[in-house]
Each structure stands twice: as C-alpha cells, then as structure tokens.
Amino acid sequence: MLPKVLNNFFDEMGSISRFGFRFFKEGFVPRYEFREMIRQCYYVGYRSLPLVGLTAFIMGLVITIQSRPTLVEFGAEDWLPKMVSVSLLREITPVITALICAGKIGSGMGAELGSMKVTEQIDAMEVSGTNPFKYLVVTRVFATTLMIPLLAILGDAISLYGAYLGCNIRGVVSWQLYWNQVFETITYGDLIPSVLKTFFFGYAIGVIGCFKGYYSSKGTEGVGQSANSAVVLSSLLIFIIDLLAVQIIDILNLT
C-alpha cells in the first residue's frame, strides 16, 4: 500500500510509541528495580556532569562574547547579563545539555543494550527470572528522565557563571550586580517551562537509546548501527520536542 520508505518510517514510529508506552505500563508495577535504577542514575547523572558542565560553561562564555557587539551597537551594553541569562536559561543550556546527553548516554545505551541483545544477555536475564524490559529499559528511561533535568539545572548554573566571566572579559560587571541583574530579569515563566521540557528530553533520550539497543539486529554491525541511529534520532527528537514546547508555552502564555 505505502511506499517502502514511508512504510518503514511509520513502522518505526509505531514501534517506538509502543515501546514508550510500555515504559509506563511496566514501570509502575512491581517489581521495582531500585538498585539498578540508582546505578543508572549514577551513570547518567553524575558521570555526565563533567561533560555537561564543560559544554555549558563554554556556551555561557561564548554566547556572552558573541552578543556583546550587537548590544554595544545599540548602546545597551548594560543589558548583556539580562539578555544572555534569559537566552541561556530558556533555550541554550537545556538543549545543549540534552544534545550532549543524547550523544553520550543515548549512544551508550544503544551500544550497551545492542551488544547485550546480540550476545543473548537479554535472553539470559529473562531466563534468570528477570524481566529484562524492567531491569534494563525502565531503569534507564527513569534515570534519563530524572537526571537530564538535574543536569540541565546544574548546566544552567555553570553557564550563567560562564556568562559572568564573559561579561567581564571586556566590560566590568561586579559579581553582585551580575546576579542582581540576572535574577531581576528571569522569571518563573522562563525557568519552569525550560525545566519541564528537559524531562521530555530525558525521556526521549532514554526511550530512543533503549529502543535502538533492545531491537538491535544481530551482529556487531547492528550494535554500531543502533548506537549511531540512537544518537541521530534522539537529537532530532530533542529539537522536535523543543519546537512543540515553545508552541505550547506560547499558547499557554507562560512567557
């Protein structure tokens, strides 16, 4: 009926949706894999912090330096902390954090679950009285859904510090004045939606990474492929969610 490409596309979309729903179906009934979940949270959250921190710091610094000339042209140099803090908090840091995590965590999950699938470790788990979906997928998706927002919040802090340094490369803004201006500018309407959307980013990264790994095709090539497509697809999905989020925020007038 449908062309093959379209058919494959919808097939994939349907499978991913089913997989995503299965997370809710199985994630909230016992037995709960708390130990494994904490382990995954550690890997996803704590272990990604240096990478996220460095990226956020650089983004804060760079965005500030890049924004300065335009503001100087308008004679609104004083607005630098205000403008930069809003754009960092609302958009740049959450998305950069999510993208970095899609690269690091998404590919890691794709490869890990992929190789577990290929070497029958997933089957072995099932034989050993463990629901592999709960043990592997639910824990990971939970971990990403909860940890990405935390990473994004810490990323916000670090990127704002980077912006502070950026403001002081050319101009002089005292520590206190900088934070005063930042908190004067940002509102709950800036912060809350931006944090809320990172939950969805995290969920998307987890679901896509696990899906690609869990249904990895046989062989080592399949593992590489699932890692790769996990990154590509979750990065794309992050942007789509971001687009949806901005529309919803706009409709609900949360700005």
Binding site: I38, R39, C41, Y42, G45, Y46, L49, P149, L150, L151, I153, L154, D156, A157, W179, F183, E184, I186, T187, Y188, L191, V195
Partner: peptide, 28 residues
Amino acid sequence: SRNVKLGIFVFAGTIFFIGVLYMIGSKR
C-alpha cells in the same frame, strides 16, 4: 560511595533549583 556521589549530585541540583526559585521569588 557511588550512592554518595549520586546523592551529592542530586542534592546539588535540587538545592540550586530551589535557590533559583527563591531568588526569582524574592526579587518579586
């Protein structure tokens, strides 16, 4: 120790979030 590290991470994130919420609120 891994749990402790995770705990610190979660604690830091939460504290910062609450801190920001408070700062915004107090400014208003």
